[in-house]
């Protein structure tokens, strides 16, 4: 849930990231509130992935002041990594490990103890109705299950923030919606969700949406207010109005 009074969990001030003469992030500034679902939209090449890598502590900006989960992006990168979860369509689970082995592997990386891993794995498989599949290889389970499992694994260590980079690309429309049910639930449990998507109906599920064009944020508001502001029927129309002027 978005509340203007909530504490800022991500603060980005004047973020600049250049690759040679190309400016990927051009003085980006925004804040994400604790517990909200924050949609991070933009055309291909607008600079989203660059910004996400910096927020996850995987790359340094050229300049700017940034904190993630209260930690400084320059000095406390390891603390940031412990307090966030990450999932993308491309990078999720290991195909040649079983369901349980994947859970144990990720939970282990985050330093959870064996007993805790066992507890959380059982609870997780119960919730996803996957108890029977505990010892199945990931490559043998349906894509929809994989996506849900990948999300659950990304938050197995109860992070403050989870970053989801196009988590629903290519999945069927029912699974896509079940996936969003899980996002809503995580958000209710206090996890801040930072999500990118090319499905504009999903943009409407976010508490607030930012739209990046050419390395800058051109708009940031609730979906309702954005639609009013741009006199648009849907977030798809808002996106087209903002991003269409750009040559890619």
């Amino acid at each position: 849930m978005y509340s203007p009074e909530a504490e800022n969990i991500i603060v980005v001030k004047d973020l600049v990231k250049k690759f040679g003469s190309f400016v990927a992030n051009d003085r980006l500034s925004f804040e994400v509130k604790k517990g909200e679902i924050f949609g991070f939209l933009g055309a291909n090449g607008a600079g989203k992935t660059t910004a996400i890598k910096i927020l996850c502590g995987l790359s340094y900006p050229n300049s700017g002041e940034l904190t993630v989960g209260g930690f400084d992006i320059y000095k406390e990168r390891e603390k940031i990594k412990k307090n966030i979860g990450y999932m993308s369509q491309r990078f999720s689970l290991y195909d040649d490990l079983t369901v349980f082995e994947n859970i144990r592997f990720y939970a282990g990386i985050y330093g959870l103890r064996r007993r805790v891993i066992e507890e959380r794995a059982s609870a997780l498989m119960e919730k996803l109705a996957m108890k029977e599949s505990r010892n199945m290889l990931i490559r043998d389970i349906p894509l929809g299950w994989k996506q849900k499992l990948a999300f659950s694994v990304a938050i197995i260590h109860h992070p403050k923030i989870v970053f989801l980079d196009e988590p629903t690309g290519g999945v069927d429309p029912i699974t896509r919606r079940q996936f969003w049910d899980m996002i809503f639930e995580a958000s209710r449990n206090g996890i801040t969700v930072f999500v990118t998507t090319h499905y504009m109906d999903e943009a409407e599920y976010c508490d607030r949406v930012s739209i990046m064009v050419d390395g800058k944020i051109s708009a940031l508001n609730t979906p309702e207010n954005l639609k009013k502001q741009y006199d648009a029927e849907s977030m798809n129309d808002v996106f087209l109005k903002l991003a269409r002027t750009k040559v890619n």
């Binding site: 055309a43 291909n44 196009e166 087209l240 890619n248």
Partner: peptide, 11 residues
């Protein structure tokens, strides 16, 4: 799937 992973404008 020429438009998978492609933004709404390019699509």
């Amino acid at each position: 799937e020429p438009t998978t992973g492609v933004d709404a404008v390019s699509r």
